[in-house]
Design a protein around this nucleic acid. Sequence first.
DNA 1: TCTTGCCTTGACGCCCGCGTCAAGGCATAC
DNA 2: GTATGCCTTGACGCGGGCGTCAAGGCAAGA
Lengths: 137, 137
Amino acid sequence: MRIGELAARAGTTTRTLRYYETRGLLPARRDGQGHRTYDEGDLRLLEQIRTLRDFGFDLEETRPFVECLRAGHPEGDACPASLAVYRRKLAELDALIGELSGVRSTVAAQLARAELAAEASVPGGPEPVCELGGRTL
Amino acid sequence: MRIGELAARAGTTTRTLRYYETRGLLPARRDGQGHRTYDEGDLRLLEQIRTLRDFGFDLEETRPFVECLRAGHPEGDACPASLAVYRRKLAELDALIGELSGVRSTVAAQLARAELAAEASVPGGPEPVCELGGRTL
DNA sequence: TCTTGCCTTGACGCCCGCGTCAAGGCATAC
DNA sequence: GTATGCCTTGACGCGGGCGTCAAGGCAAGA
């Protein structure tokens, strides 16, 4: 099949496929007209790439999976290099999620504080919140 | 004070300050030599920007806080527009953390599956894992 | 023959927050 | 005089993964 069909079947664009080729990730054969030619195996490789990209993997991080498939393994993650990428990614995700969670709680605390301060200074009705035994009860 | 001193005191660079000025975020007065001049209030504004940037806020998202301070409020988040940014950011963070957590568990599952498959096909010693009542016991 | 449709390579654009280099001005210190 | 150090504006670079023209080729269908 040619580039347009492969792109359509994988739900991506011809531009993307040409880009992958420049990166050496998905080289293509050429037919008599100089057009790129792909087979079902290439579709499989491309699907592997897209799946990992959807997970947020960098393009370079998909390379071990692609090479693993190209080496004849039925799964792209059947090789040690792929497992290593999985593990690095897990560590990255854990670090990132932890960091974001910290920011989240900090921002939440700031918001709560600012809301309290705003409420206390509103001219309309300060209406101080019940402070567990405060005189507003 | 001039740009170099302000940058140093805020732990950033002169390039950054000039960039903020082009964005209209931190305009500067000029002295006789055409040099930018800042005061302590500008340092306060800059610190507000940097703090929010460290939390992952886009530069534009810091604008309401800066304008709030410039309007005379003692805190940058004493204005409704700032609170709105806080809330949007919280929602963004929740969405992102949720998404990343989903990816994390998916990747973890893939890793576990791939490790099992690898273990089962290792020529050295398959040594199948106990499957809770499996015949390997 | 002409149009349509697919393909080719090349190259610039985008986003965002700056880093970095270039070329020059002004002031203080020696 | 000149070296040093701070400042100025202008402009290109970067990273990642493509989007989006531009200009042209080749083949099949009306």
